[in-house]
Design a protein around this nucleic acid. Structure first.
Lengths: 286, 286
DNA sequence: CATGATTACTGACTTTAGTCAGGCATTCCC
DNA sequence: GGGAATGCCTGACTAAAGTCAGTAATCATG
């Protein structure tokens, strides 16, 4: 079924989409214009999203700029990063693309009955969610890397928002930079270069391994990413010789607590004095 | 939802697919090799399926031929159309592509749980079916055109297979070539150049319009194509001034009979002496 | 059997996409 | 404050994709 789907849907609809998006301008330019959007975008962000060569992208930007569709100026913060914004003409062009995209969507739905339409859209949503889930890759990464930093920032932000008394990362028991082998490790989950989750492991010879910094982005919640991260951390803990893994957590993180219980963790007495922790869990490793 | 789907699924998976399919050969060549397949294919058929320029295709064929992957020889029937066949090496290459395609499919399913997998494949099947339904276009066409001939051949073949006593098209009450305005009209339903259904209307001033030659291919049955053809025929009958439309049918064509009943047709006495007809229906037009 | 349509092919092109190396300015990190 | 890293840019390429006009062979048709 997957193959059939790739062949028929992906190619047919993809071609249709490209045809609509193109029109009188090379496809790459239209895609770039579209990606910049009415609110503008940083060049670096666009580059990773579209996965373009830096030189190629620069040239495309120059073309659009000389066509009077965009202006590329200095960014707000980092002076190296430049931001592209649509001009008046660019906004008009963007609106045309937007309308065409709507027309394409409508042309797909138009011939169908109401029942078929609702079945199609819900099936599309399902495919999109599950495909997103399957595109999530989990791999080790240095905690200093940008991807890791992005995850950790999001992690701290989320804890600060959800803990009853906020969260001060300063008092943390572990410095992120310690989470490298052999003292520990850091895993990041990404979907197409965008980080969507992370998890860390602290290893002390002779002591149980400890799981820290488990976080999953809203955008992929409910797709089993947390479970996969947890499983991968356990596997690596076993590989490092640990026979027990433990962790602490806050009572407000109910999904996490449910995940731990469903994954074979049982509650244990406090093994540390983390002021934000209300529950301590452990799981013996085979 | 449709737009979101186009953007995320179509582009992401499409790119993945192309990446796998390519490898060490230009994408167009791989696609062509794949399209020819182990059973071979007529050049003309490939050309319409991939929608390639004749010159470009010819060049691609020459490249594959000089790489020893295919041989292009004369076709069986028409001496103008040539057929491409894979050589031994070509078959091996094709098998590699086939395996890669399998790997891609597996890489999509692999990270998912069993439940997610089955949900994904059924959602994909649903999307594919409904998208196919929405890609069906219905338009008038001269009965002499190749698309129309293909439909009529399939129509006759199907009647011959399903009628109790077979079917002899020779005794037909209406010559196909009469089905052009103003005496009648012929509609063909196509999905991406492939004809998948047809229907005809006979118009006599002062008499009821008559529906004939309604046929829908197996490949799109159950997607509402028959209903759309019927509706379009009725609309055109109204436009031509008819206030009643009627038709005859064979008792073995149960789906058709069900369609007529569900579409507001009621059974009437025989209005002709078609030896293959068991039921006669009519519907007043608004 | 002449005529026009269809099919495939060739040669001469253009455009698009993409790569690579080197350079300059800015920022990060001890 | 001095590398090292990062982000963007330019110039010089290459390969792939696609277009167009003209030609030869074959077929359908009156």
């Amino acid at each position: 079924m997957v193959r059939r789907f790739n062949r028929s849907v992906t190619q047919r609809v993809g071609a249709l989409d490209d045809g609509y998006l193109s029109r009188d301008r090379p496809l790459a330019q239209s895609r770039l214009l579209w990606e910049i959007g009415p609110v503008g975008a940083e060049v670096a962000a666009v580059r990773t999203r579209l996965d373009l060569d830096a030189g190629y992208l620069s040239r495309l930007l120059r073309t659009l700029e000389s066509a009077g569709l965009i202006v590329v100026g200095p960014g707000a913060g980092d002076g190296r990063v430049r931001t592209a914004r649509l001009t008046e003409a660019g906004r008009a062009e963007w609106a045309v693309l937007d309308r065409k995209s709507d027309e394409l969507a409508w042309s797909v739905l138009e011939p169908l009955t109401d029942g078929q339409r609702s079945r199609l859209t819900s099936a599309m949503a399902e495919v999109e969610r599950l495909l997103m889930a399957s595109l999530v890759t989990i791999e080790p990464c240095h905690p200093g890397e940008p991807r890791a930093r992005a995850c950790l920032r999001a992690y701290v932000r989320e804890l600060a928002a959800r803990f009853d008394a906020g969260f001060d990362p300063g008092g943390s028991s572990v410095d992120d930079h310690e989470l490298v082998p052999p003292a520990g490790l850091f895993l990041v989950a990404t979907v197409a270069t965008e980080p969507v989750g992370c998890g860390a492991l602290r290893l002390c010879p002779g002591e149980p391994a400890e799981i820290k910094r488990l976080w999953v982005s809203d955008s992929v919640r409910g797709l089993g990413v947390g479970r996969r991260l947890l499983g991968e951390l356990e596997r690596r803990a076993v590989a490092a010789g640990a026979d027990l893994v433990r962790l602490d957590t806050n009572r407000n993180l109910t999904e996490a607590i449910r995940l731990y219980r469903n994954s074979g963790y049982h509650e244990i007495p406090a093994y540390n004095s983390n002021p934000y922790a209300h529950h301590w869990f452990a799981k013996p490793l085979a």
